[in-house]
Deep mutational scan, measured.
Amino acid sequence: KKRTSIEVSVKGALESHFLKCPKPSAQEITNLADSLQLEKEVVRVWFCNRRQKEKR
């Protein structure tokens, strides 16, 4: 499966949402994916990866 490159503006939106809520619910992920026009899975994985980055 190909990697999804996320635009800078979208990254900013994801980042600001992450600061408010690092573990969004499935519903929040769906809403966020719809508003940013990304697949739910891409948003879910982004949050997962971002939480791991926070641990490092």
Rank of each mutant, 00 (worst) to 15 (best):
K1R: 06
K2H: 04
K2W: 05
K2C: 05
K2P: 05
K2G: 12
R3T: 10
R3H: 06
R3V: 13
T4P: 06
T4R: 06
T4C: 07
T4M: 11
T4W: 03
S5W: 06
S5D: 11
S5Q: 15
S5E: 11
S5Y: 15
S5N: 15
S5M: 15
I6D: 08
I6Q: 10
I6Y: 07
I6N: 06
I6L: 12
I6W: 09
E7V: 07
E7S: 15
E7W: 04
E7M: 12
E7I: 08
E7R: 11
V8I: 15
V8W: 08
V8P: 15
V8Q: 15
V8K: 14
V8E: 15
S9C: 06
S9I: 05
S9Y: 12
S9P: 10
S9T: 11
S9N: 15
V10N: 08
V10W: 09
V10E: 15
V10C: 09
K11H: 12
K11P: 12
K11A: 09
K11W: 09
K11D: 14
K11R: 11
G12M: 15
G12Q: 09
G12T: 14
G12L: 15
G12R: 13
G12A: 15
A13Y: 08
A13Q: 09
A13G: 04
A13P: 05
A13T: 11
A13H: 08
L14D: 02
L14I: 04
L14P: 00
L14N: 00
L14E: 00
E15A: 01
E15S: 00
E15T: 01
E15N: 00
E15D: 02
E15M: 02
S16M: 10
S16D: 13
S16R: 12
S16C: 10
S16A: 12
S16G: 11
H17K: 05
H17P: 02
H17R: 04
H17F: 09
F18G: 00
F18I: 00
F18P: 00
F18R: 00
F18N: 00
F18V: 01
F18S: 01
F18Q: 02
F18T: 01
L19S: 11
L19N: 13
L19R: 12
L19P: 00
K20R: 11
K20M: 07
K20I: 07
K20A: 07
K20P: 01
C21V: 06
C21E: 14
C21L: 03
C21N: 06
C21I: 02
P22G: 07
P22K: 04
P22E: 03
P22C: 10
P22V: 03
K23T: 11
K23E: 12
K23M: 12
K23W: 10
K23G: 06
K23A: 13
P24K: 00
P24T: 02
P24V: 02
P24S: 01
P24F: 02
S25A: 05
S25R: 04
S25T: 10
S25Q: 03
S25N: 10
A26N: 12
A26I: 14
A26G: 10
A26W: 08
A26R: 10
A26H: 14
A26S: 08
Q27D: 11
Q27Y: 07
E28L: 04
E28N: 04
E28C: 04
E28R: 04
E28T: 06
E28W: 03
E28D: 06
I29S: 02
I29F: 02
I29N: 00
I29Q: 02
T30M: 11
T30Q: 15
T30S: 13
L32F: 03
L32M: 10
L32W: 00
A33L: 01
A33G: 03
A33W: 01
A33R: 00
A33F: 00
A33Y: 02
S35A: 12
S35F: 07
S35V: 13
S35D: 08
S35I: 09
S35N: 10
L36M: 08
L38V: 11
L38Q: 03
L38E: 02
L38P: 00
L38G: 00
L38R: 01
L38N: 02
L38W: 02
E39H: 06
E39V: 03
E39M: 04
E39C: 09
E39R: 05
E39P: 09
K40R: 11
K40G: 11
K40S: 13
K40W: 10
E41R: 05
E41Y: 03
E41Q: 04
V42Y: 12
V42Q: 12
V42C: 07
V43Y: 02
V43W: 00
V43D: 00
V43L: 04
V43K: 03
R44A: 04
V45K: 12
V45S: 14
V45T: 12
V45E: 14
V45D: 15
W46G: 04
W46S: 04
F47S: 04
F47P: 15
C48I: 14
C48Y: 14
C48V: 14
N49L: 05
N49M: 06
N49I: 08
N49Q: 13
R50C: 02
R50S: 01
R50N: 01
R50F: 01
R51V: 07
R51W: 13
R51N: 07
R51F: 04
R51Q: 08
R51K: 03
R51L: 13
R51D: 05
Q52H: 09
Q52G: 08
K53A: 14
K53P: 03
K53Q: 12
K53M: 08
K53L: 14
K53W: 08
K53V: 12
E54W: 03
E54S: 05
E54V: 06
E54I: 02
E54G: 06
K55A: 12
K55E: 13
K55S: 12
R56S: 08
R56M: 13
R56D: 06
R56H: 06
